[in-house]
């Protein structure tokens, strides 16, 4: 539990291993193509399934960074699990820091691809905090929280993509 006497270091230790999200996402053609447009992809494989097949792919793929946008469109409420994680453990760490000011920045982003995302997939993802630490930089305290989300194919259970999302609070 959080109280005034708990130090930030203790908070950070506490949140490592906590589950941040559980999501099920349906990958649909419209949002996949729209996202590709938004990051200025110019290949026809993002528009036309026949072009994707000509390129040897089973269907229209997601752009390399689509993983970050897919929950905005395909996370339909009726297919989500009945036990979503309570609250955001990231905010548990950043809440007390934000109360004293500073800003939150996206510091780093990494994707590990096991296979591309394709239109027609249903993906299941679970995110958890894998690292949380502080560093001094130019007289400012930087607090880093890294969330790892593993997305798997609901049908086969095979891994599809892993996202490592590193957010920073700069005091």
């Amino acid at each position: 539990m959080t109280d005034d006497t708990t130090s930030v270091e203790e908070h950070l230790k506490e949140i490592v291993g906590e589950i941040t999200t559980k999501s099920k996402v349906v990958i649909e053609r419209g949002p996949v193509s729209f996202f590709a447009d938004a990051v200025l992809e110019n290949s026809p494989i993002y528009k036309d399934p026949n072009e994707a097949r000509k390129a040897g792919l089973p269907d229209i793929p997601g752009a390399p960074t689509y993983c970050i946008g897919m929950e905005a469109w395909g996370k339909f409420p009726e297919i989500q699990s009945d036990d979503p994680p309570p609250g955001s453990p990231i905010m548990k760490a950043f809440g007390p820091l934000m109360a004293k000011g500073g800003i939150i920045l996206h510091g780093e982003q990494e994707f590990v691809y096991h296979r591309p995302i394709f239109v027609g997939d249903v993906l299941v993802g679970e995110g958890k905090i894998v690292e949380a630490y502080q560093k001094e930089s130019k007289g400012k305290t930087m607090t880093f929280v890294v969330t790892e989300t593993n997305w798997v194919d609901e049908k086969t259970g095979e891994p599809v993509v892993t996202s490592l999302f590193n957010v920073i609070h700069r005091g």
Binding site: S43, L57, A63, P64, Q109, F111
Partner: peptide
């Protein structure tokens, strides 16, 4: 999109950046 233009989206195994 530039990386994809060069190597093909299905060949990409890992992609990491610092902002």
């Amino acid at each position: 999109s530039a990386i994809e233009d060069y190597v093909g989206v299905a060949n990409l195994k890992r992609y990491k950046v610092r902002f």
